[in-house]
Simulated assay, not measured.
Amino acid sequence: MTFQTWWLFFGAVFLLSGKPGPNMLHILARSVRVGLRRSLAAMAGCLSAVVLVLVASAAGLSAVLLASPVLFDGLRYAGVAYLVGLGIRAWRGRDGALDVPGHTGSPAPVGLRRLYRDGLLIGLSNPKLLLFASAFLPQFVEPARPQAPQFAILIVTFAGAELFWYGVYALGGRRLAASLTRPALRRAFDRITGGIFLGFGAMLLGTR
């Protein structure tokens, strides 16, 4: 892999990773609710999912999904159910107490293990990511050279771009949290994030 090829890949994944999606919304919402430091556990969960998907695509596991529509649909429906459940929790304000000044919400603080688990499941909720990665990564791999080191470089680069944007969204969440001191604004935040997660679930349900 040449430096020019790597640079082209980095530019593409940097732009792709920065697009608002379930992972980025989850990081932003977690930063608002539990604080920047504790949201690191959610970032670790999302990043673990991304790396697992990229490794799986490099190993050719996407062919299994393509060969088994039943398996793909099963994973898709599981992802839809999780996103919808998360959206309902967020809509009802039951996704953990908000970490904002003066807030004394009844939900108990969210543990680090759950923060990591939720981030991991969010990242794994869309099986189409595996198919996308399997089609995207090989375009930047030179067949004449050893492929494993090239895939490793691409995966590390992708993970680094994701992590950068996680930090950006988390910092944005902390700035947003300072504005959510009024109950009406907190309820609006719950409704908006919940509605977006429900929308992501509906979009995943409609994919084929």
Rank of each mutant, 00 (worst) to 15 (best):
F3M: 08
F3V: 06
Q4I: 02
L8S: 10
L8F: 11
L8E: 06
F9A: 00
G11V: 00
A12F: 03
F14N: 15
L15S: 07
S17M: 11
P20D: 09
G21I: 13
G21T: 07
N23K: 13
M24K: 12
A29M: 01
R33W: 03
R37Y: 10
L40G: 15
V50L: 15
L52T: 04
S57D: 01
S57T: 01
S57V: 04
L61S: 08
A63S: 12
S68H: 09
S68A: 09
P69T: 04
F72A: 05
L75N: 00
Y77E: 12
Y77F: 13
L83V: 08
L86R: 08
G87F: 00
G87S: 05
I88S: 09
A90W: 12
A90R: 12
R94T: 02
A97I: 11
A97W: 03
L98P: 13
P101W: 09
G102I: 09
G102E: 11
H103V: 10
A108E: 15
P109T: 00
V110P: 00
L112A: 14
R113S: 05
R113C: 01
L120A: 02
L121T: 01
P127L: 04
L129G: 12
A135T: 06
F136Y: 05
A148Q: 13
A148Y: 02
P149T: 08
Q150F: 08
F151R: 08
G167D: 04
G173Y: 02
R175Q: 08
R175F: 06
A178K: 10
S179P: 03
L180N: 11
R182Q: 14
R182M: 09
A184L: 05
R187G: 01
R187E: 06
R187I: 10
F189E: 11
G194V: 00
F200Q: 14
A202G: 15
A202R: 10
M203N: 12
G206Y: 05
